[in-house]
Every structure is written in structure tokens, then in C-alpha cells.
Nucleic acid binder design. Structure first.
Lengths: 88, 88
DNA sequence: TTCTTTATTCGTCGAATTACGAATGACGAC
DNA sequence: GTCGTCATTCGTAATTCGACGAATAAAGAA
């Protein structure tokens, strides 16, 4: 068990806004950044920061679909988290 | 799904030292604070802080066994975490 | 009593987090 | 071309985190 990598993943989910973002993406599959700004009462720049945290942890993936950015859950990475937590 | 409570639990595990502490307690059942200071290269006061974070999140329980303090995992709370993560 | 051990709390410091608005860049619409 | 939209980055302020040593409290040993 690697404490460091579990800590990194947990840290990414250590804020309710990021839990909500991941949860939303898990439910709806994919969506544009603009949609994410609708589901949280935060400034776009703040949401962008939270999205970056999730991206850097590998929990979500972003693809530049022309002018808009399309985000989705990284299922494999999420599975890693689930397995590590289940193994506690 | 309550984003706030999952975020609180994840925040408690958002540091490798705390993951290690929880992991150790999960493996060994119970132990005194002094033993915890052996498994981490940190000052006792720092470890006490991390233990307090885990305690406040409800993930571990501490009972004052005479002069020494005995810690153990709060299995129900840990189960809550596992279920919330599995539901993502 | 005095000393030692055990665990915690306090004070402090630098680093990181979280929030925002402003500025920026990139693409379409007009 | 100019304007508006979309997403991000930058700069900044307030707060929190993480680490340590010092001080503290409580119990037992010398």
C-alpha cells in the first residue's frame, strides 16, 4: 500500500466542490466547462482551479473540443481510488 | 450523496502520514500513541496533530487507558467512507 | 519530593489552499 | 475588422496546513 498515492487522490477530493464536480461527471458522462459553472456557486476562475486539481490527480480528463473544453471521469483512475479505499 | 461529508473524510486522509496511521491501526487493531511515534519520522507533537485530525473526522477512536492513550480504528466510520467512495 | 515518561497544547513560521476579479487568448458571429 | 463568448492564467488577499520546539499536565519510579 502506497500511502502517498492514496493521499494524493484523497487530497483531490478534500473539498466539497471537487466531490460535486467528480460526482456530476460520473453521473452525466461528459460535459463542457460551462456546464460545470452552472452547478456550483463559485466564480469560473475558482471552478477552473478545482478542475485543475482533479485533472492533476488524474481523476478527470479534459479534451479540447474546438473552442470548448470537454471533461469526463477517468474511470481507471477512479477505480484505483476505489480499490485503495476498499483495501483499508 | 453528501459532498460535504465525503470531503471531510477525504480531507482527513489527504496526508500520507494520516493514511499511514490509519493503515497501521487497521492492521494492528489498537496501539498506544507511543507506538505511532515509532512508525513515522515526525515529531510527537506533529503526530499528535495528525491523530487529532483523524479523531475529529471520526475515523479513529482514542481511549485514555490510565496514563497512556489507546487508539483504534472506528470501523463503522471507515465503512461509511468505503461506501461513499464505492458509490462514486 | 524530585525525576522521568507520556501525551497533548501552545506559539510560531513558511507553505499551501481557496476565493475573487482582471487580464489574456482563441474562436465564431456580426 | 470588431464584438462577445468560453476557458484559463495571473495577481492578490485571507485562511488553513504542516512542521517544530517549548511548555504543560498527569502518573509512576527513585
Amino acid at each position: 500500500m502506497d500511502e502517498e498515492s492514496l493521499a494524493v487522490l484523497c487530497k483531490a477530493l478534500a473539498h466539497p466542490a471537487r466531490v460535486k464536480l467528480l460526482n456530476y461527471l460520473a453521473d452525466y458522462g461528459t460535459c463542457y466547462f460551462g456546464k460545470l459553472t452552472d452547478i456550483l456557486p463559485l466564480a469560473p476562475s475558482t471552478i477552473s482551479q478545482h478542475v485543475t486539481v482533479l485533472k492533476e490527480a488524474g481523476l478527470i480528463l479534459g479534451s479540447d473540443d474546438n473552442t470548448r473544453t470537454c471533461y469526463c471521469v477517468n474511470a481507471e483512475r477512479l477505480e484505483e481510488l476505489k480499490e485503495m479505499i476498499a483495501a483499508l
